[in-house]
Design a protein around this nucleic acid. Structure first.
Lengths: 200, 200
DNA sequence: CCGACCGCCATACCGGTGGTATGTTCGTGC
DNA sequence: GCACGAACATACCACCGGTATGGCGGTCGG
């Protein structure tokens, strides 16, 4: 039986995470204090330290929050019933769109490698969006849609290119135009490595 | 007439910058204190604050230091006398090699966007390695070596891909193998957008 | 129904760090 | 050789992450 206290506890925890996501997005990791995070959640630092082991742990919870959101949307598309090539294109479009979310942009892509350390970030990304991209590329190769390429490094190249480009979109004045340019270039490149046997 | 005091002053300033580069590389921006930086340069925080306006300014000086180093090597290659395509390939190889330097890796690529802010980092990068890459791509298009592509976003895609991939190399156990794989994939992609008229 | 228990959270406090204000030394130019 | 100011050193403050301790209120066995 789930007790009333469990409800309270979970409620404050999620409030803390939401508060952290918002403040980390607005002011960055170094620029936000734990007191602010707690204050926005209408609790004190004591409550925060009861739910998390420290500032890093709060950040990782915020990281998981935004990553899970993106992963959910991506997974839905990549496991659809369309042909592999179309699924990949749709996933590409969806991922670029996700990168435009300031929270995902700043927390998951920009600050996470610095705050969590590159190794831990990479490990986590393998379970989230990067893992899905790698999987999608793997499927394309498996289906014979694209030429065989080293999976790990090619995924890394693609992921890095997309993140970097998405940041460019997010900061540009004409997001639509830049977004279309990027999609165009990426699709052209992908079409070049597409196996000749596949239909147009 | 350059005074003796100017020598002293410049000497301590460069000592501070060298110290900052080393410590920022080893422990990151947040993990290093100004006292440590000053101590390694055998001065106190007072001297540091005489030469720099604050911690951010020290970081930017360290950033300029490592960026200038890479830019110098890259410029020498890209302004060589070889044909454009070979110059670009050599520059590509050189840039990947530069990314393996832990100082450049961590300070210029990883932490700078977070510490300096993305806008300021992008502005600075336009004067350094990213600017050179964009220039090289521009030259290739100008020489008719590759198809016309949106310059800004394509440079951004390329830059992001290379940085991401270089980080992967730097952390891998078999750097040579991963490096060759990446170079192979990038060259294959570039060859795909090469104009058919160019010779093999 | 009730009282001991414990999870949940608040309060008080500490060490360290970025930043500032002030003091001190020493080379420089008149 | 002396006053001046640049180049530092020293002392101090405010803030923040982290810890220790106290207390309130649900929970549960009797």
């Amino acid at each position: 039986m789930r007790s009333r206290r469990d409800d309270y506890s979970e409620s404050t925890r999620t409030a803390l995470v939401k508060s952290a996501v918002r403040l980390f997005t607005e002011r960055g990791y170094a620029g936000t204090s734990l007191d602010e995070i707690a204050k926005r959640a209408r609790v004190t630092k004591g409550a925060l330290y009861h739910h998390f082991s420290g500032k890093q742990a709060v950040f990782e919870a915020a990281f998981d929050e935004v990553e899970a959101e993106v992963k959910g949307r991506l997974e839905k598309i990549l496991t659809g019933s369309q042909p592999p090539w179309e699924r990949a294109l749709a996933g590409l479009r969806e991922f670029i769109g996700s990168c435009l979310d300031p929270a995902y942009q700043r927390i998951a892509l920009q600050e996470a490698p610095v705050v969590m350390g590159w190794a831990r970030w990479r490990e986590a990304e393998d379970r989230y969006s990067f893992g899905l991209i790698k999987q999608a590329l793997h499927d394309l190769i498996d289906a014979g849609e694209v030429l065989a390429v080293p999976l790990e490094v090619t995924s890394r190249l693609l992921f890095g290119a997309l993140c970097s480009a998405a940041t460019e979109i997010a900061h540009s004045t004409d997001q639509r135009k830049v977004g279309e340019e990027i999609e165009d270039v990426v699709v052209r490149l992908l079409n070049q490595v597409r196996t000749p046997t596949a239909d147009a």
